[in-house]
Design a protein around this nucleic acid. Structure first.
Lengths: 202, 202
DNA sequence: GTCTATATACTGATAGAC
DNA sequence: GTCTATCAGTATATAGAC
């Protein structure tokens, strides 16, 4: 068991636990027992609990492409389809966890009320990576959207809808709330596409 | 200082603290010191900390009309305007707190990962009251919306957008994220109104 | 109903042998 | 780098006098 292994195992375990129970409700003892690591080892790699959180947020930030986008976009070419394929990925997560687990970054963002600047900026960076990826989809479909459409704002809006939809599905323990929200978003996007088409005939 | 006063002061203080610091980070000691109540008194009224939370959630649930809707809808008659007036109220909260405090229910909903059924259902009831109020606005404007519009789903969607917009503004500490999200929602609602008008001429 | 003192459990973090 | 033992602080909750 080399050093990189131990450090990595700590981070993977912490990632799991923060997702399941949140940051505040996860104790160092929880991380130690599940990862089969002893106190001395953890504090050898990390000065304190918050530094474990920083490590986890960096993993999310650096892994968004491989861990999140690639699996959901496999075999999906149309940029608009990609947007809803990603949202479908979140739906699957909700389903397999009985509407218990949602977006880990969103949960942390609302749980930690006064985050250290380092933590806050990492959460923001995660949001930016996410909404920028969606903005890229809107950019790729720019010729099918009304002229002057703000891809960045639309990317942020899709993130907003995902987070809100997850929040409601979790609170009600009912996937119907997620589905209805995504259906409204779908209606909006359809409307944008139709408006652009209508204008192009005018 | 009569009993009702003490109980009420505990709940008002807890409401403040849960909003500022969250549920987990608020200790009973915090509530006691700020409310100037002693341990024995609090435990006389509430069996435990979670029961204080239940009391707070009941206050939100019972006070949504007087505390939230009435102030934001004063002098606003048009149902569509009411929707955006309520959202403007959340914007004001963000502004006066330097983008620190958002929706108290949303924060609790994402902070508490495994809530007791009582707590979860009270959070859900708060969401339902909110989105039902908005659905009422869409109902009142039904004749200006495309036929067959789902007012309930639209009410839930507006809640979603509010929560997501607040989450991003808080995480970035930047009201611009809130404003852009609401602007996109405004565009969507405008589109709905225009589509209905166009259809009525067809 | 209010107040003080305190029980008990658990928290993040540390010291020092190996 | 790993392991054990443990510290000091704080959490929720309680007991019992008034």
């Amino acid at each position: 068991m080399n050093a990189a292994d131990t450090r990595h195992r700590i981070l993977m375990t912490a990632m799991e636990l923060f997702w399941e129970k949140g940051y505040g409700s996860t104790s160092i003892a929880d991380i130690l027992s599940r990862s089969q690591v002893h106190s001395g080892s953890l504090y050898h790699f990390f000065p304190g609990k918050q530094d474990v959180l920083v490590g986890v947020l960096e993993m999310y930030r650096d892994g968004i492409g491989e861990m999140l986008l690639a699996p959901n976009w496999e075999g999906v070419d149309d940029p608009i389809d990609k947007i809803f394929a990603l949202l479908a990925g979140y739906r699957t997560h909700l389903i397999v966890t009985d509407c218990t687990y949602g977006c880990p970054i969103g949960s942390l963002a609302l749980e930690i009320h006064e985050p250290d600047p380092v933590v806050r900026e990492l959460m923001a960076a995660n949001f930016t990576n996410w909404s920028t990826a969606i903005a890229g989809c809107f950019d790729a479909a720019a010729d099918r959207l009304p002229p002057g459409s703000d891809a960045k704002a639309l990317g942020e809006f899709v993130l907003t809808v995902m987070e809100g939809a997850v929040m409601q599905a979790r609170t009600y323990r009912d996937i119907g709330y997620f589905d209805r929200n995504i259906a409204v978003l779908r209606d909006y996007v359809t409307t944008l596409l139709a408006a652009a088409k209508r204008d192009s005939f005018a």
